[in-house]
Design a protein around this nucleic acid. Sequence first.
DNA 1: TGCATAGCTATCCATATGGATAGATTAGTC
DNA 2: GACTAATCTATCCATATGGATAGCTATGCA
Lengths: 200, 200
Amino acid sequence: MSRSRKVEPETAIQAAMALFWKHGYHDLGTRQIEKETGITRFTLQTVYGGKMPLFLKALDRYLDTFEVHAAPTMSDGNLDAIAAWFETRSDPVMFPEVTCYGCLLLNSTVEFVGENEEVNLRADRFFDMVRGGFRGALDAVKETGGVSADFDVDAMVEVLLSAAIGLNIVIRASGRNAAGADMANAIAALVRGWARPADV
Amino acid sequence: MSRSRKVEPETAIQAAMALFWKHGYHDLGTRQIEKETGITRFTLQTVYGGKMPLFLKALDRYLDTFEVHAAPTMSDGNLDAIAAWFETRSDPVMFPEVTCYGCLLLNSTVEFVGENEEVNLRADRFFDMVRGGFRGALDAVKETGGVSADFDVDAMVEVLLSAAIGLNIVIRASGRNAAGADMANAIAALVRGWARPADV
DNA sequence: TGCATAGCTATCCATATGGATAGATTAGTC
DNA sequence: GACTAATCTATCCATATGGATAGCTATGCA
């Protein structure tokens, strides 16, 4: 049979994802990828098809992980769960060493200005996931009477999305998750404030 | 005396600012700057000192303009003014052909990951301006009784900042100001909803 | 033990980058 | 009209980039 890969393909793509997360696409060279992930420049070409395909693979891996572990999916009808989702962001239990660089997909979206179709597809998936998560959560809250009857779910989904984006950008700007603490707490307070007055 | 510049220095820096706005720093070459602004590569070196100094000059110019024309400065104690500031963002009267690329300073902050001190200084100035603007506006509203007495100004400043950032990122992601309409309207609705119940 | 397969090392290449420089050109001044 | 100074044009340069290729090496089955 053949010779075995120097680094596990799975480990390799995780490492590549972390690199793109921090440096973005254009500011990361294939030689640096080789040095820091162990993926040979040869393998980068023959196995992954080049730098851009590897990048897209990293985006997909990011989205898969995000979907399972990080996306807002609280549908227990509790505003607190939404608030906590924001609070956790500034003090994450998982992967703090990469999440301090913000959100890989937001970063990529900013970098490519919506001019790369492949990146756009991933961005669409990402925004759908986040919007859908918030909508499901707020729908459940409204259904259980956690907010007043005239609460505009669609509008507040957009508000939550904007807040989530802002929080991630602020964190990236400083490179520290904790730098988003004030903002995260403020958003959490806003969300909790949506509780039906009688229930407070 | 000496020969006169091919393009007005003022026109040149405006054009350079627009280019950096769209393309960012790393993805814009000096030859492209030369072609699209009229700034000779020679002049870029001798007069502006190189690509990075020109970029920083563009950032400063952006901030100066932002401070005068775009920063939130409504201190009339009216929540509507704050709401309108967001609504205007998705249908700007001024410079729609560049504002559709988001906010130059946010873009730069994302690109440099807080690792360039000169860029950091500009980012600090920017965030101070926005936070200060929102705080002044909300303070005035609270003072005139436009919101309830227990309204947490500091927290809602952070909420507005996160919303403003999110809005600009969404717009950049699509390259169209109008793409931020739903989000802008939602944020405006949120702000108007802060009005003291008795006043609604 | 030998052979086939796939990965690795080490180059090579065309291109693009930011920057430097030398000679031509244009302006205002004496 | 000649001189001076700043800008322009046209190169040149060292470096870095993504990608391609040729020969070496390790792996596991026959």
